[in-house]
Nucleic acid binder design. Structure first.
Length: 281
DNA sequence: AGTGTCGCCTGAATGC
DNA sequence: TGCATTCAGGCGACAC
C-alpha cells in the first residue's frame, strides 16, 4: 500500500477539493471492501459540508460538518482519483466508491485488491476507536524523538525491522521505508529491537524522518498501483537505496566488487527485507 | 501479552 | 501458447 508519504500526497490532493465543498452524492458500487460499509453510510455523508481533511499514520480522515468523520485506509492497492467534472469521469474496473461534490468534482476510490476501507463514525469517537487507540506517534510530529523511540524498542524481542512495521511503535512506516531507514542508519534489520542503543535510536528516528520527508518531497513511490489524485506518478522509487534492489550494488560501499553480492533479500515475518550485509551492523 | 504465520483479494511476472 | 506458481506499499484473526 501506500505508506505514510503516499497517503500524505493523497491527502494533499483531496484537501483543496473537499474543503469548503459539500458531498452531494455518494455511490457505493460494492457491499464492502476490507469491512462492510457501516449501515446508512451514504445517508450520513450526503449533503454534508467537509470541515477538514487530515492524515494519521496511513489513514486519511475526512471530518464532516455533521460531527462525523470518514476514516479512509488505502490498503495495498487503493487509489484516489479526482476529476474536475462528471463529464471527465469514466468508470473503470474496481471503482468502488464515487463521491460527487457541489462544485461538480468527482472523487473516486479504486481498489483492486479491496484491502482498503472507508469507516465512518462520530468525530468524538475517532481518537479512541480501534484504528487509533494504540497507534504510536507521528514520525514527523513533535512527540517522536530518540528517547521515546528508544523506550518503546527496549522491551521488544522481535527484530528491529518488524518493530518498525508495528504501528504501535511509530505510525505510518511500511515495508519500503523501514528498509530504507535501517539502511540509512546502517542497522542490520535482523537485530533484536531491544539491542538498539540510545544513540542508534536517535539515528534511526532521524533516518525515519529524513526518509519519509524526502519521499513526500519526491511525491511518494509509484510501484504497481500508486498514483497521485491527478494520475501523475511519484518518483521516490528511483531513489531507493535497497528496496527491490536485490543483487544490485550497494550505493555506499564496494561490497559488490570484492566477491560478495550487493543488496540482499531475506524474508522476515513473511515480508521481504532488503539490506546490505556489509554496511548494516 | 508478545510474537510469528496465514489469509484476505486481484493481477503481473515468472517458470515449466 | 497456456497453465501453475509466486509475489506485491497492509492488517488482523489465530495459535502458541
Amino acid at each position: 500500500m501506500p505508506e505514510l508519504p503516499e497517503v500524505e500526497i493523497v491527502k494533499r490532493g483531496l484537501e483543496p477539493v473537499f474543503m469548503n465543498n459539500i458531498l452531494e452524492d455518494c455511490r457505493l458500487n460494492i457491499n464492502g471492501l476490507r469491512y462492510p460499509f457501516v449501515e446508512n453510510f451514504t445517508d450520513i455523508v450526503k449533503n454534508i459540508p467537509v470541515d477538514a481533511v487530515n492524515r494519521r499514520g496511513k489513514y486519511i480522515l475526512v471530518h464532516l460538518g455533521n460531527d462525523h468523520t470518514i476514516i479512509w485506509h488505502l490498503g495495498m492497492s487503493g487509489r484516489v482519483k479526482i476529476y474536475s467534472s462528471a463529464q471527465q469521469y469514466e468508470a473503470v474496473k474496481h471503482d468502488h466508491v464515487v463521491l460527487r461534490l457541489k462544485t461538480g468534482h468527482v472523487v473516486v476510490y479504486n481498489d483492486t485488491r479491496r484491502f482498503g476501507f472507508l469507516d465512518l463514525m462520530k468525530t468524538k469517537d475517532v481518537e479512541t476507536c480501534r484504528h487509533f487507540s494504540k497507534m504510536g506517534p507521528e514520525p514527523l510530529g513533535n512527540h517522536f524523538d530518540g528517547e521515546s523511540f528508544y523506550q518503546s524498542l527496549r522491551n521488544r524481542k522481535t527484530s528491529i525491522k518488524a518493530a518498525l512495521l508495528d504501528q504501535r511503535v511509530v505510525a505510518g512506516v511500511g515495508n519500503i521505508y523501514a528498509c530504507e531507514a535501517l539502511y540509512m542508519s546502517r542497522i542490520d534489520p535482523r537485530r533484536a529491537a531491544l539491542t538498539i542503543s540510545r544513540k542508534q535510536a536517535d539515528s534511526l528516528a532521524s533516518s525515519i524522518r529524513t526518509v519519509l520527508s524526502t519521499a513526500i518531497d519526491a511525491g511518494g513511490s509509484s510501484l504497481k498501483d500508486y498514483a497521485h489524485t491527478d494520475g501523475s506518478l511519484g518518483y521516490f522509487q528511483h531513489m531507493f537505496s535497497v528496496y527491490d534492489r536485490e543483487g544490485r550494488p550497494c550505493p555506499d560501499c564496494h561490497c559488490n566488487n570484492d566477491g560478495k553480492c550487493g543488496i540482499k533479500r531475506i524474508v522476515q515475518s513473511g515480508r521481504s527485507t532488503f539490506f546490505c550485509a556489509t554496511l548494516q551492523k
